[in-house]
Design a protein around this nucleic acid. Structure first.
Lengths: 205, 205
DNA sequence: ACCTGAACACCGTTCAAGT
DNA sequence: ACCTGAACACCGTTCAAGT
């Protein structure tokens, strides 16, 4: 005699996302999720294989949201402006949902990670823009340069690693301006062609 | 009547570092550490305040080692070569001790994080080099650009986020070459001065 | 002054028994 | 077919009792 469903996978994932953002990953316990959806903890195992599996679902959903935001951010006629907008959108997303964002590039066990396929999807917009900037033969390398920088910047920002003062927003704009400017110019040739004298160091601020 | 010490803080930290690298953070339990140093788990609390505190010591020791490596990597006469060497040294360190490396920029609880002072120390070498390249007024922003990129690159690499194929080593060299080339040239002016026609996109590889 | 066994609260997870 | 109480193994941590 079947009993009617008292919850669903979607509801469990949403409860997990809410708890994650409000209380942090450590407080995302099966008990807390069960309380929120109104069942006992063991019942969750009818819909997720494990806590790591649930975290994997949350990571996957987060990557999906990020992909939507990034896709909506591009499409202008200026590839450099698009790249800048992609970076700002990426950062804004991380600021809005820091705990979820961390999950995307977190290490944890295999089951807790987003699928490679979803990561591929998320990188499509930046690949399109870098292909425009540097041509398809270097699009992947350029996308990795920009993505690594954006990811590292936001990660350091969120973990409080930028503690030398200075304006972090300004540092972000400095970064994206330089990246947008340098892409499309072969690095080695330009470095060789440079004629400006190097400025002398006057100490570290 | 005092009993002779059966272990020490140094031994506990070293045991923690060994377990972390060989078995991962999840297996770094107080029990595992206690077994390795030859005491019972409760005895560890005479020397560390908590597991997070122990992780904090490990993170601190790792930052210290990284600082030594980075400091030894610079000092040539060419600032661009120094910057490249710093990035490669940073990446090599992360590859050698990935689990410890992650700890440096990990999020976790306050007690488990390395001290701000140690992070400041670790960034001294890159600040020295960027000051040479862009002058002291932009040294901090330039250091943040390079550090964010290097950190993000290695993080994505270690977490398996680079799954679109391509040569990851080549992408790293592409990145550092572009960063070394662009620093020292005001981004906005150069972008405005550019005369090269933009290449057309021919699809995403 | 350090070390230990015992205990506590809290996890993730399993499973037989209910409906 | 889903849900539950009870139980298990395993955590971090505390503390009174030993030496």
């Amino acid at each position: 005699m079947p009993t009617p469903d008292r919850t669903s996978l979607e509801e469990i994932i949403q409860a997990g996302r809410d708890i994650l953002e409000s209380d942090g990953l450590a407080r995302l316990t099966m008990q807390a999720v069960a309380d929120r959806v109104g069942v006992r903890a063991p019942s969750l195992y009818k819909r997720v294989a494990s806590r790591d599996d649930l975290i994997g679902y949350i990571a996957e959903a987060t990557v999906h949201d990020l992909t939507e935001r990034l896709s909506a951010a591009v499409g202008g006629s200026d590839a450099r402006a698009d790249l800048t907008e992609l970076a700002r959108t990426f950062r804004a997303f991380a600021h809005e949902r820091p705990a979820s964002f961390r999950l995307i590039f977190a290490f944890g066990p295999e089951a807790s990670r987003p699928s490679p396929a979803s990561i591929v999807e998320a990188s499509a917009p930046v690949l399109r823009v870098t292909a425009e900037l540097v041509g398809p033969e270097n699009a992947l390398e350029a996308a990795r340069l920009v993505t690594a920088w954006a990811n590292g910047f936001v990660n350091m920002e969120l973990s409080g690693a930028f503690n030398l003062g200075g304006d972090v927003n300004h540092a972000f704009e400095f970064g994206i301006a330089h990246l947008a400017a340098t892409l499309g110019v072969p690095a080695f040739r330009r470095a060789a062609r440079r004629s400006q004298p190097r400025r002398a160091a006057r100490g570290v601020p």
